[in-house]
Computed example of a mutant assay.
Amino acid sequence: MELTVYLAGEIHTDWRDEIKNKAKEKNLPLSFVSPQLNHDRSDSVGEDILGEQPGKYYRDEAASSINNLRTQIMMQKADVVIALFGEEYKQWNTAMDASAAVAMNKPLILIRPEKFIHPLKELSNRANVTVSTVDQALEVLAYIYE
């Protein structure tokens, strides 16, 4: 049985590659989907498809609607969501994706560092499992196959 894992979280570091490589090393039958990882494409997709917009607000609105559609489809196809809250970048999209997973009743593994225990306490309470590291999240997935 192969599971599809939606990897929610910031797109500026290589944490997704780390998960994919470690899952492969463990021979876990997982496939991965994610938000659009090309930041420029994500920002410009609205204008790329709909044409030039009359200002920054409308440019962001056009891109957001298309990105949200993509995310919704990818998350609906996923069997489980891993949402990583990193320490370096703002995490608004991660919070939105994790909340969407909860609302969609998708199994959610939340990865959050110790310094975010308090600010993420309600979201952590709604996640199926909360861990501190990528390795712990993979161990949770590996346990499914025991």
Rank of each mutant, 00 (worst) to 15 (best):
M1R: 10
T4E: 10
V5T: 00
L7T: 04
L7M: 05
L7I: 03
A8W: 09
I11K: 06
H12T: 15
T13A: 10
T13Q: 11
W15V: 02
W15E: 03
W15F: 00
W15S: 01
K20H: 06
K26A: 14
S31Y: 02
S34T: 03
N38P: 01
S44D: 07
V45P: 00
V45C: 07
E47P: 13
D48L: 15
G51L: 04
E52H: 08
Q53S: 10
P54L: 04
Y58H: 09
D60W: 00
A62P: 02
A63G: 09
A63Y: 07
A63C: 08
I66G: 14
I66M: 15
N68F: 03
T71Y: 06
T71R: 08
I73C: 05
M75S: 08
K77Q: 15
D79P: 05
D79Q: 02
V81N: 07
L84V: 03
F85G: 03
G86P: 13
E87R: 14
E87I: 05
K90L: 03
Q91A: 00
W92T: 09
N93A: 12
D97P: 02
D97V: 07
S99A: 12
A100L: 13
V102P: 01
A103G: 02
M104F: 15
N105G: 04
N105S: 04
N105M: 02
N105Q: 08
N105Y: 07
K106P: 11
P107F: 14
L108I: 09
R112K: 15
P113A: 06
E114Q: 11
K115G: 06
F116H: 13
L120G: 05
K121S: 10
V129A: 07
V129F: 14
V129D: 04
T130E: 09
T133F: 11
D135T: 10
E139D: 02
E139L: 02
L141C: 12
L141A: 09
Y143W: 14
I144N: 11
I144M: 15
